[in-house]
Simulated assay, not measured.
Amino acid sequence: MQIEQLKLALIEWILETQSRQLLDALWEWKAAQKAERERRFFALCGSWQSDQTGDELAQEIYNARNDQPRDIIL
């Protein structure tokens, strides 16, 4: 079977199976999956409990930096 015949058969199948309802259901399912993945991702990142304020944490990170000049021979 050639590609064009397969495409035509697929189009006919979609039209025969109440395509609008089927496609709407598929899109809703796909959107629900994406929303669930996003919800799980955002539940894992971005915050934690700490006694430090954001400014204190930023200062601690800044103070921990090691950016002294290095002797590099080129």
Rank of each mutant, 00 (worst) to 15 (best):
L57T: 10
Q52G: 03
L26A: 15
Q33G: 06
C45Q: 12
A25D: 03
I61K: 05
D51L: 12
A32D: 02
R70G: 05
L44A: 13
E28N: 03
S50L: 00
P69L: 01
A31H: 05
I3W: 15
D55S: 13
E36Q: 11
G54K: 13
L10P: 00
E36F: 00
I14N: 09
L26R: 02
N63D: 15
A32I: 06
F41N: 12
L15C: 08
Q2N: 15
G54T: 06
R37G: 01
D67R: 09
R20N: 10
K7P: 07
A64W: 12
Q59H: 14
W27L: 08
L22N: 01
R37I: 05
L6S: 08
N63Q: 09
A58W: 05
T17V: 14
C45S: 08
G46H: 04
Y62V: 08
E38I: 11
D24A: 08
S50I: 13
W48I: 13
L57F: 04
T53L: 00
K34H: 05
M1V: 09
I11Y: 07
M1P: 03
Y62M: 15
Q52Y: 14
W29I: 02
E16H: 09
W13Y: 12
L22E: 03
F41V: 14
R37S: 03
I61R: 07
I61H: 06
S50R: 11
E12K: 13
D51C: 09
L15G: 11
